[in-house]
Design a protein around this nucleic acid. Structure first.
Lengths: 116, 116
DNA sequence: AAGTACAAGTTACAACTGTAACTTTTTGGA
DNA sequence: TCCAAAAAGTTACAGTTGTAACTTGTACTT
C-alpha cells in the first residue's frame, strides 16, 4: 500500500474528518495543496483503487469519501520504512541524529519521559 | 537534491568508503541490491548530474567515484522532510508515536539521555 | 420536455524511476 | 600493430506520479 505524496494530502484530510464530499475535501486542503478539481478526483480514484479510501453514495447527487485505512497503521508503516531506509532500523542512531540536529533537546526528551 | 531509493543505496556505499570504482561499488552493494552493472552505471551518472557524486579519473582505465554531499547533511534534510510530511514538524508527536509502536522503550530513551 | 450546470468517471501526458541493452572508447596482450 | 575484453558513456522503455482535460450521466429550472 504505497501512498504517494500528493495522495497523502488527501488522506490527511480524510483522517481529520470522515465522509466528506469532493468539494468538502477541496475546501479543507490547505492553500498550498490547492489543485484543479480534476486532479483531486484522480487522486481520490487512485486511492480507491488501492483500497485506501472508500466512496459512498450520499444523496444520488454527490458521493462521500472516507479513509479506509487508519492513520495509525499508516504512520506505523511509514515510521518503519523511514527507520530502515535511513538508519538501518537502528533507532538509537536516529534519535542521536535528531538530537544532533537540535531538533530535540535533552529537556524535551526528559519531558517526554515524564509523560510516559 | 532529490535522491531516489535506488540511488540512495549507492550513496550509502560511497558514504562508507570514498573513491571506489564501479566494480568496487557493485561488490559492496549487499546482495539485495545487486543489479545489472548497467543499472548501477545509470544510477551513478544520474547522481553525478544531480551533483551528489563526483567521478575522478583514476588510472586512465577506470574511474573512481566519491560522494559529493555529506551523509550528515543528507540525513538532516531527510529527517526534516519526514517530520514535516508525517508529523507536521511536531517532534513530540513523532516520538510519542515511536514509543507507542514500541519501537523505543522508556529505558532506551533514558539510556540516550545518559549518553548526552 | 429540454437544456444547462455540475458531479461522476475516464483518458492523457510529461516528468521521474528502476531497470538494462546498446554503442563507443580505451588498452593490455598476441 | 591490431584485436578483443572491459570500461565509459548513451539510449530505451515500461511503470509510477502529478497534473488536468475530456466525456458521460444526472437532476434542477424553466
Amino acid at each position: 500500500m504505497k501512498i504517494t505524496d500528493a495522495e497523502l494530502e488527501i488522506m490527511k484530510v480524510l483522517w481529520e474528518e470522515d465522509n466528506l464530499t469532493l468539494n468538502q475535501i477541496i475546501e479543507k486542503l490547505s492553500s498550498k495543496e490547492q489543485k484543479n478539481k480534476s486532479t483531486i478526483k484522480t487522486l481520490l480514484y487512485r486511492l480507491i483503487d488501492k483500497g485506501a479510501v472508500k466512496s459512498i453514495e450520499k444523496n444520488k447527487k454527490e458521493n462521500e469519501f472516507k479513509a479506509n485505512i487508519s492513520r495509525k497503521k499508516y504512520l506505523k508503516e511509514e515510521n518503519n520504512v523511514f527507520l530502515e531506509k535511513l538508519y538501518n532500523g537502528n533507532i538509537d542512531n536516529m534519535l542521536l541524529n535528531f538530537v544532533e540536529d537540535k531538533k530535540i533537546s535533552k529537556e524535551k526528551i526528559q519531558k517526554l519521559l515524564d509523560i510516559l
